[in-house]
């Protein structure tokens, strides 16, 4: 029993890393654009899709798929921003309409993929091999997902803290208006943020595809998990997203030993509702 729990904890870490990456994008888009992107999960799905198609149909080596996924999904992110976000957020009821617009964009992406490929999962060959660490065995793919995830988060922090773009991004997050006054191209920074978030989601999808295999519905469910993470970890908070993402992965993984995957999800969703009702600004906020 103890071994099983340890094994599930190890597995949960890699899944939790993808939740953290999804939540990172959601929280960043919320922080800078002040919107919740309901299409975000589909970028993750697209990342998995690119990897699945390239490895299984074109025989491209797995590692080469990662940059391809990032670039192609960046294009999808750019298109979504252009068609569904940018034209709507400035309008009087934009805050409401943009929810619907991103939801519609997500639906378009998801249903197109579903209708083209069908609901059957596609197996993705990642990095082969298994490592034994005492009672726990981990595939190299899972280890790669964890390491790559940590690397992404680190790069992210460097971009945010050390680069000109990062400074501009933080300025826009603080005050849209003041950033305009000092002459920043706010629209461009917002678009870049949106695209960057889409890239990170795509990489998360590409990392998880060999572990859980690809299916068209993966984006929807992971997006809900992403919402759980950002709400509990406080919208707009990057440490909150990372910590809660990992925590959720571990919790879900261990809980699924006892109550099954779906019921575990339902319990986590219920936790979200409770959090929303009693601490709507998240656990990481200073005051409720």
């Amino acid at each position: 029993m103890g071994d099983l729990v340890l094994q599930q904890l190890a597995n949960g870490l890699s899944v939790g890393m993808t939740y953290a990456l999804i939540a990172l994008g959601l929280t960043m888009v919320f922080g800078v654009l002040h919107i919740v992107n309901f299409a975000h999960g589909e970028f993750y799905m697209l990342g998995g899709l690119v990897t699945a198609l390239l490895t299984s149909r074109a025989g491209v080596p797995y590692l080469a798929c990662l940059p391809a996924a990032a670039i192609l999904v960046a294009a999808a992110g750019w298109a979504t921003d252009r068609l569904a976000v940018r034209p709507v957020i400035g309008r009087p009821d934009g805050a409401t309409i943009v929810l619907v617009a991103t939801f519609a964009a997500g639906l378009i992406i998801n249903e197109t993929v579903l209708a083209t490929l069908g609901p059957a999962p596609i197996r993705v060959d990642g990095i082969a091999g298994v490592v034994k660490l005492g009672p726990v065995s981990l595939t190299w793919q899972r280890i790669f997902a964890i390491v790559f995830g940590i690397l992404l988060i680190a790069i992210f922090q460097i971009i945010l803290r050390r680069t000109e773009f990062g400074r501009q991004l933080r300025a826009v997050a603080q005050s849209d208006y003041a950033s305009r006054v000092i002459g920043l191209d706010v629209e461009r920074i917002k678009s870049l943020t949106f695209i960057l978030a889409a890239c990170v989601a795509a990489l998360a999808g590409a990392l998880i595809a060999p572990i859980l295999s690809f299916n068209a519905g993966m984006g929807y469910h992971t997006a809900i998990h992403g919402f759980v993470v950002v709400v509990i970890g406080t919208m707009g908070s990057i440490p909150g997203a990372v910590i809660c993402g990992l925590g959720l992965g571990l919790l879900e993984s261990v809980a699924s030993i006892f109550i099954g995957q779906e019921i575990a999800s339902a319990c986590i969703y219920a936790l979200l509702i409770v959090t929303l009702l009693f601490r709507p600004n998240g656990v990481f906020s200073r005051s409720a």
Binding site: F30, I35, V36, F38, A95, T96, L99, F103, F227, V231, L272, L276, L277, P280
Partner: peptide
């Protein structure tokens, strides 16, 4: 819950 939170 306003806006996006209600939708979620």
């Amino acid at each position: 819950l306003s806006g996006a939170y209600f939708a979620i």
